[in-house]
Simulated assay, not measured.
Amino acid sequence: MSTGAEESGGDGSQLFFVPDDEAVDQLMSMGFSKNAAIRALFYTGNQTVDIAADWLLDNSDKNLDTPLENDLQGTSDSSDEDEADDFLTADTFKMVFVVNAELNMGVGKVAAQVAHAALSLFRNMIDTESKAQMLMAWAHMGETKIVLRGENSTQLEALAHQASSLGLDNYLVHDAGHTQVAPGSKTVLGIFGKIVEVDRVTGTLKLL
């Protein structure tokens, strides 16, 4: 299936999006339109049906039935353009957490470490006006958050370096070592930014 969206980047490059056909069908079977399903998959990073469905419910007050291409390429109607601007400035942000699987942390430990990464990343950004505005836009549109599986400490460090090189805010948690893991263990990497940029760093990782 060739359905997708295309956006011209500032450097003249093309960004393509091809939604997962099966995910689109599943979302449509839940009563959502095809355009709404494609939008949801785009704005949640083409992850899972559940995540896309949650996004649709969170944004049920918006017009989701217009083609995604209108968001990416602009439209002739000024009200549509305003709505497209809202999507592009807010919905394209997400926060991801890469959990260090080699540490074999328990569910509670993982939850605590993800929370640590989220709070630390938020605190590091909130005092900078431009970053605070991004956080507010992200919060306004549902605060998309994704938890992914990382292989080991070396991979988390490499991903953090890559994120920094792209100008993405990130925070790597070094645990105090009071429970389950050794002091200084790199447990979770948090990254915040536009979906297309964050996916350049974590797009190949699997959900935890």
Results as ranks from 00 to 15, higher is better:
74 G>R: 15
74 G>D: 10
75 T>F: 04
76 S>K: 06
76 S>E: 11
77 D>A: 09
78 S>W: 08
80 D>W: 07
82 D>T: 12
82 D>A: 10
85 D>G: 03
86 D>T: 07
87 F>Y: 14
89 T>N: 08
89 T>F: 04
90 A>Q: 05
91 D>I: 00
92 T>I: 11
92 T>W: 03
93 F>E: 01
93 F>K: 01
93 F>R: 00
94 K>S: 05
95 M>P: 13
96 V>A: 12
97 F>W: 07
97 F>P: 15
97 F>A: 08
97 F>L: 13
98 V>M: 00
99 V>L: 07
99 V>F: 01
100 N>Y: 05
100 N>E: 05
101 A>H: 05
102 E>W: 02
104 N>V: 07
105 M>G: 10
108 G>A: 12
111 A>S: 09
111 A>D: 02
111 A>K: 03
111 A>W: 04
112 A>M: 07
112 A>N: 14
115 A>E: 09
115 A>Y: 02
116 H>F: 03
117 A>R: 14
118 A>N: 05
118 A>V: 00
119 L>M: 10
120 S>H: 13
122 F>H: 13
123 R>D: 05
123 R>C: 02
124 N>Q: 14
125 M>D: 03
126 I>K: 15
127 D>G: 08
127 D>I: 06
128 T>R: 07
128 T>F: 07
129 E>F: 00
129 E>C: 01
130 S>Q: 13
130 S>T: 05
130 S>H: 04
130 S>W: 12
131 K>H: 12
132 A>D: 08
132 A>W: 02
133 Q>G: 05
133 Q>L: 15
133 Q>I: 09
133 Q>H: 09
134 M>N: 09
135 L>K: 12
136 M>I: 15
136 M>S: 11
136 M>Q: 13
139 A>K: 11
139 A>W: 00
140 H>G: 09
140 H>Y: 04
141 M>N: 00
142 G>C: 06
143 E>C: 02
144 T>P: 05
144 T>Q: 08
144 T>F: 02
145 K>C: 03
145 K>D: 01
145 K>Q: 13
145 K>I: 03
147 V>H: 07
148 L>E: 08
150 G>Y: 01
151 E>V: 01
